[in-house]
C-alpha cells in the first residue's frame, strides 16, 4: 500500500476515483439557486408514498441507482454500500439497503455523513478490499422535523438561528484509481468537538468549532495553503455558523477568503425563507453530488476541499441538558489531468 497517514489526514498515493454521482432533491431545493445541477427534482415531498420515511427511502434508492448508472457500474459489481441519514437507527438508509441488496455499512455522522462515507469508500478501494463502493447520505425535511422538532402542521415561528432541513439525497460510486477524472486524494478525519453550545435551534454555532478544528488540522497535516484550493466548502454552518467559523480560523492564523463558502448557504435563496440556511445529511451530499462533482468533472474546479459538519446530539440529550458534540470531516476532491 502506498497510502500515507499524517496526523488526522490520510493521503492516497493512488487516489480512488469518484466514478459517478447523483443528487435527488425535493421541490424547495429544486427551486433554489442550484436547481440546474440536480439530477432529479421531485414535485412533492411525499412521492405518493404512505409516509415521509418511505418517500425518503425511495429517494435514496433512486439516487444510488442513478449514480450507479452514471458510473456505468452494474448492481452486481458493487462490493459495499455505505450510507446514513438523520433518523433513529438510520432506518431510511437501512431500508434502502434492503432493496439495493448489496453488503451494507450503516453510518451515522449526522450532516457530515457524506464525508464519512467518501472517506471510508476511498479507504476500502485504496486498501484493495473493494473495487466499487456505492454511498449515499440523505435527509428529508418532514422526517427530521417530526423526530427532532415539531409536527409539520404546528404553527411555530422558527428562531432566527434555526436552519431548514433539506429534502435531498446525494449518492456516489467510488472506484479504482484511474477509472474516473474526479479523485479523492486526501481525507482528514475530524475529532468530536464540543464547545458547550446547548441550543438545538442554533446548530451552526455549535458546529463551527468542529469545522474550524478539522480545517486547521487539514492544512497542518498536509502543509498546504488555502490557495491550493479553488473552493473550500463547509457543510451546513449557514448564516450563523459560517462567519463564526471564519473568525475561529482567523484566530488560528488561517484566512480562506472568498473561496470559503457553505453548502447551507447555497441551497436556497432568501425568498425561500430557510431562516439561517439549509441543513441535513442531504445538504452537503446533494451539493457534492450535484454541483461539486459536475463542476470538477467538467474541469471548472481543479481541486476543492469539502468539509461537511455534523451535530451529534439527540432530542433526548438536549432535553437532559447535555451540550452538543459536533464533528467535521474534510475530503479533498481533485480533477486529474
Amino acid at each position: 500500500m502506498t497510502t500515507k497517514k499524517n496526523g488526522q489526514t490520510i493521503g492516497f498515493s493512488n487516489p480512488p476515483a469518484v466514478l459517478g454521482a447523483a443528487a435527488v432533491v425535493g421541490p424547495k431545493e429544486g427551486a433554489g439557486p442550484l436547481a440546474g445541477w440536480f439530477d432529479v427534482v421531485k414535485a412533492d415531498r411525499l412521492l405518493g408514498m404512505k409516509s415521509w420515511e418511505q418517500a425518503e427511502t425511495k429517494m435514496v434508492e433512486e439516487a444510488v441507482n442513478l449514480a450507479l448508472a452514471k458510473a456505468k457500474v452494474r448492481h452486481q459489481d458493487v462490493d459495499f454500500f455505505l450510507g446514513g441519514d438523520l433518523l433513529n437507527q438510520i432506518v431510511v438508509t437501512s431500508f434502502a439497503a434492503r432493496t439495493l441488496d448489496v453488503p451494507f455499512f450503516g453510518l451515522y455522522g449526522a450532516c457530515a455523513t457524506v464525508a464519512e462515507a467518501l472517506a471510508l469508500a476511498a479507504v476500502l478501494v485504496d486498501g484493495g478490499f473493494a473495487v466499487n463502493v456505492a454511498l449515499a447520505s440523505s435527509s428529508h425535511h418532514d422526517t427530521a422535523e417530526r423526530q427532532y422538532r415539531f409536527p409539520a402542521e404546528f404553527g411555530i415561528q422558527r428562531p432566527v438561528t434555526a436552519q431548514w432541513t433539506a429534502t435531498a439525497v446525494g449518492a456516489a460510486v467510488v472506484g479504482p484509481h484511474g477509472k474516473g477524472k474526479v479523485q479523492v486524494t486526501h481525507v482528514t478525519v475530524g475529532r468530536v468537538v464540543d464547545y458547550g453550545q446547548k441550543d438545538p435551534m442554533d446548530l451552526g454555532a455549535a458546529m463551527a468549532p468542529a469545522a474550524a478544528d478539522t480545517i486547521a488540522r487539514h492544512f497542518e497535516d498536509t502543509g498546504r495553503d488555502p490557495e491550493a484550493y479553488d473552493l473550500i466548502l463547509s457543510g451546513d454552518l449557514a448564516a450563523v455558523g459560517h462567519p463564526l467559523c471564519v473568525e475561529l480560523l482567523e484566530r488560528k492564523g488561517l484566512r480562506l477568503d472568498n473561496r470559503f463558502v457553505d453548502c447551507g448557504l447555497m441551497l436556497y435563496d432568501d425568498t425561500q425563507e430557510p431562516v439561517a440556511g439549509a441543513s441535513g445529511c442531504g445538504c452537503s451530499a446533494s451539493v457534492f453530488a450535484g454541483y461539486l462533482f459536475k463542476n470538477l468533472e467538467q474541469g471548472r474546479f481543479k481541486r476543492v476541499l469539502l468539509v461537511p459538519t455534523g451535530a451529534l446530539h439527540s432530542p433526548t440529550s438536549c432535553q437532559q441538558g447535555e451540550s452538543i458534540p459536533c464533528v467535521a470531516h474534510a475530503v479533498v476532491l481533485e480533477r486529474s489531468g
Partner: peptide, 27 residues
Amino acid sequence: MKATKEQADEYKRLVMRRSPRPAILRN
C-alpha cells in the same frame, strides 16, 4: 474534545456577539 469552561464561556460570548437578533418590532 470537550472545551474547558473558560473556552466554552469565551465561545459563548463570541456567539452572542455574532448571532442575529430576532426582528422584535416586526414580530
